[in-house]
């Protein structure tokens, strides 16, 4: 998390030295290249999403959002995120704690495994669950006997979401906790704090901004995930469709305005996430530390 302030001072430093100041032409070229790329691949699509969504006016836009299938997709997306994010929060904090503060056999392996969802294609992630829990899978028949459905049902969507968002929080916390070391925790223990008190009063306040940042990224991905969820969902309208899947269906049915309307919601979520992320980066930067101090929770 490079604070915006440090980036600014670095650029000031760079500009003020003749040794590191680039030739005008080079600078202009770099700027044009960078901004051009940004405009073409990021800003333009965003504008298109909103333009297409509103092409037929606000009424159509609103109708596409309040239509029952759309509402159900929104509900399911929120539900999947509401389950996946807290679970990954618990997992992320424990994994980061274990990796940063203890020495144990298999630590390197665990660190690598945490990254697995990043390196595996989401489609494969979805297929894994189909193979394990599907009708022809390992546990499929057994679960079927108890009338439990996982694949082509909500549990499968939640599982797939958890899998793909697995690394976000742990990844964010591990370097942070490793850098902080465990001296403060040791100091707390010597002063008579229990493990629980140490966690709430010392560890958590130290990692809270990193943690929040991880949660936001995790949430954004949980709501936006397409590939893995698509494999396990079965695309049953009003039942197992999440927002990204709903967008795809509408688009395939040539309901462009409605598709873009739902897509614009996801885009808004992305923009909101970015804004929140910037606020957190700003608050977490050392300069604003003293006032960025909410009350510590009591155990």
């Amino acid at each position: 998390m490079a604070g915006a302030t440090s980036a600014l001072s670095a650029s000031q430093h760079f500009e003020s030295r003749s040794a590191t100041r680039d030739h005008g032409l080079v600078r202009a070229l770099l700027l044009i290249l960078g901004l051009g790329f940004f405009a073409l691949f990021l800003v333009l699509p965003l504008v298109v999403v909103f333009a297409e969504a509103l092409r037929k006016g606000w009424d159509t836009y609103w109708a596409a959002l309040v239509e029952p299938d759309a509402l159900s997709a929104i509900r399911l997306t929120l539900l999947a995120a509401a389950i996946a994010v807290p679970l990954n929060l618990v997992f992320g904090v424990s994994a980061a704690w274990a990796i940063a503060k203890y020495r144990f056999r298999g630590k390197a392996l665990l660190t690598t495994l945490i990254d697995l969802p990043f390196s595996v294609s989401p489609v494969i992630a979805g297929l894994i669950y189909v193979l394990v829990f599907g009708a022809q899978g390992w546990f499929g028949p057994l679960l079927d006997g108890y009338d439990i459905r996982i694949i082509f049902a909500v549990p499968g969507i939640v599982l797939a979401t958890i899998f793909v968002t697995f690394p976000f929080i742990a990844r964010e916390l591990i370097p942070l906790m490793e850098a902080q070391g465990s001296e403060e925790e040791e100091a707390a223990l010597v002063l008579g704090a229990s493990g629980w008190q140490t966690f709430w009063r010392v560890t958590l306040p130290n990692i809270k901004w990193g943690l929040l940042y991880g949660v936001i990224l995790c949430n954004a991905r949980a709501m936006g995930e397409f590939g893995a969820v698509s494999v396990v969902s079965g695309h049953i309208r009003g039942l197992t469709n999440t927002m990204p899947l709903h967008v795809e269906i509408l688009y395939n049915e040539y309901q462009f305005a409605a598709a873009f309307a739902v897509a614009s919601l996801l885009a808004l979520l992305a923009l909101f996430t970015l804004a929140l992320k910037s606020v957190i980066e700003w608050r977490a930067s050392p300069k604003s530390e003293p006032e960025a101090r909410p009350k510590e929770p009591l155990p």
Partner: peptide
């Protein structure tokens, strides 16, 4: 540790930074 009633001053102080 917590029951030993020792005071420990760490080399790098380990003050709670927050």
């Amino acid at each position: 540790v917590r029951e030993r009633q020792v005071g420990f001053v760490f080399q790098h102080y380990a003050l709670f930074r927050h």
